[in-house]
């Protein structure tokens, strides 16, 4: 870990301005992913801006009937909020399927969205990784890729985005609110927040330099039955092989988002029209154009089968 200077920011705008002004600056909130990566010198900030004191840690109703979740709301508190449990069950379930009790107590809403991939080659600084070191190659392609992406991937990178929470937020059509260094705010639809790798896998989100997430808003509740099923090798405290989140309405319509298979939470709205026809039809649309490796092609079958089970559960 490289030496870094440290400051506590007072306001979101001041934090963003400081991040733009200071070379090598990074925000730190929960720290559960950033410090992990700093210890391995995968992240090497020269300056940390502690945003924990910004007070953006409330869950408040929006005028539109939804909820505005402060960026610093901890995963535990978000999952345990009775409004979330009652009206956005998918989000509670996704959060509770992730990490451990200790990590959820510390990890924040914004930080969870910004989690970096768990690709083992990204994590090993002796190996080539275009995400970690642009232009160095991708050692995961042709390597051990069982846990890696099957769709949305590129010749430069086959990493997955590991967040469970983001999968639920994608299905819920959340919006990411930010403040930029010049003090202006903007709202980024969750669908546009995570980027596909293409030739630039090191650019992972739509955030600009110094831009700070202040909140995530959820539209007003859509009702329906919410089910999140995370499939992993052990029963808890593991990243997904595949996770499937659905919201199914009484009329058979609904939404489907999938985790563990792509560089972003994966949702193909057009495929949702096939929900009445069943999992096979939806999966065909969701996974069209998939490029699995030998190690991870089982994920295609697993998505379809898990979706089938989840739909059966949602429909009682």
């Amino acid at each position: 870990m490289k030496a870094f200077s440290y400051e506590r920011a007072r306001t979101p705008a001041a934090a963003a301005a400081a991040a733009e002004r200071t070379p090598g600056a990074k925000f730190i909130a929960g720290g559960t992913n950033l410090l992990d990566l700093m210890k391995l010198q995968i992240e090497t900030p020269q300056h940390l801006i502690d945003v924990n004191g910004l007070g953006i840690d409330k869950i408040e109703p929006t005028p539109e009937g939804g909820l505005r979740i402060g960026a610093l709301v901890r995963n535990t508190d978000l999952a345990a909020d009775m409004r979330i449990r009652r009206d956005y069950g998918l989000l509670s379930r996704a959060l509770l399927a992730g990490a451990s009790g200790q990590l959820r107590n510390k990890a924040t809403t914004a930080g969870n969205l910004l989690q970096r991939t768990r690709c083992p080659y990204f994590y090993d600084t002796n190996q080539a990784c275009n995400k970690r070191k642009p232009g160095s190659g991708c050692a995961a392609i042709g390597g051990f890729s069982r846990s890696l992406g099957v769709i949305g991937v590129s010749d430069a990178c086959i990493a997955t985005q590991p967040s469970d929470m983001a999968v639920a937020m994608r299905a819920l059509d959340a919006t990411v609110e930010t403040v930029r260094p010049d003090g202006t705010a903007r709202a980024i639809p969750i669908a546009d927040f995570h980027r596909l790798p293409g030739a630039t896998p090191h650019i992972e989100t739509a955030l600009g330099k110094g831009e700070l997430i202040t909140a995530v808003t959820l539209p007003k509740p859509v009702g329906g039955t919410h089910v999140y099923h995370k499939v992993r090798d052990r029963a808890s405290y593991a990243f997904a092989l595949v996770s499937v989140g659905v919201i199914v309405q009484k009329d058979g319509s609904g939404r489907v988002a999938v985790g563990g298979i792509a560089p972003k939470p994966w949702r193909v709205e057009a495929s949702e029209a096939d929900l009445p026809r069943g999992a096979k039809a939806v999966a065909a649309g969701l996974l069209a154009g998939a490029k699995p490796t030998h190690d991870n092609q089982f994920k295609l079958t697993l998505v379809e089968r898990t979706l089938g089970a989840v739909l059966a559960e949602a429909r009682g």
Binding site: P120, G142, G143, F144, D233, R234, A235, S236
Partner: peptide
């Protein structure tokens, strides 16, 4: 029986999943 395997990168010759997130051992829930 169910989860443990050091995954070998047969090109570069090392165990790829070299931490406790990658090399999964049973947890309480198992």
């Amino acid at each position: 029986a169910m989860i443990e395997e050091l995954a070998v990168d047969k090109r570069f010759g090392f165990f790829v999943n070299h931490d406790l997130a990658g090399y999964e051992v049973p947890v309480h829930a198992d």
